Measured scan of single mutants.
Amino acid sequence: MQIFVKTLTGKTITLEVEPSDTIENVKAKIQDKEGIPPDQQRLIFAGKQLEDGRTLSDYNIQKESTSHLVLR
């Protein structure tokens, strides 16, 4: 499924993911596309910070959901 990640600069990154993917996996995909190390990434969805060990389905992130990327 596709999800979108919006950066603070207003850029939207499109990612191909599975509901069973962990947040860690998603951060690795963002690193592949954008070159941002996962330890600098914070992903926010529905006002919550997403934890590495959880999956997209844990957070009820469905296709075409948009989460926000904040850099630390």
Rank of each mutant, 00 (worst) to 15 (best):
Q2Y: 13
Q2I: 15
I3Y: 02
I3V: 05
F4K: 10
F4N: 07
F4V: 10
F4M: 08
V5A: 02
V5E: 00
V5F: 06
K6E: 07
K6R: 12
K6Q: 10
T7I: 12
T7V: 09
G10F: 04
T12I: 15
T12K: 07
I13Y: 05
I13M: 05
T14F: 08
L15A: 01
L15D: 00
V17P: 01
E18F: 14
E18D: 12
P19E: 08
D21L: 05
D21Q: 04
T22M: 06
T22Q: 04
I23M: 03
I23F: 02
I23E: 00
E24F: 14
E24V: 07
E24D: 07
N25I: 14
N25R: 14
N25F: 12
N25H: 12
N25K: 14
V26M: 05
V26C: 03
K27P: 00
K27R: 05
I30L: 07
I30K: 00
I30Q: 00
Q31L: 09
Q31V: 04
D32H: 11
D32M: 14
D32V: 13
K33F: 08
K33M: 12
G35D: 05
G35T: 03
G35K: 06
I36R: 02
I36M: 05
I36Q: 02
P37R: 08
P37N: 07
P37G: 04
P38R: 13
D39Q: 11
D39P: 07
D39W: 13
D39T: 10
Q40Y: 08
Q40L: 10
Q40D: 08
I44G: 03
I44A: 05
I44R: 05
A46T: 05
G47T: 04
K48V: 14
K48S: 08
K48R: 11
K48A: 09
K48Q: 14
E51Q: 10
E51C: 11
D52G: 06
T55C: 07
T55P: 05
T55K: 10
L56M: 04
L56Q: 00
S57E: 11
Y59A: 02
Y59K: 01
Y59G: 01
N60R: 07
I61N: 02
I61M: 07
I61F: 06
I61G: 01
Q62R: 11
E64A: 10
E64C: 11
E64N: 15
S65L: 08
T66L: 10
S67H: 12
H68E: 10
L69A: 02
L69G: 02
V70T: 08
R72Q: 14
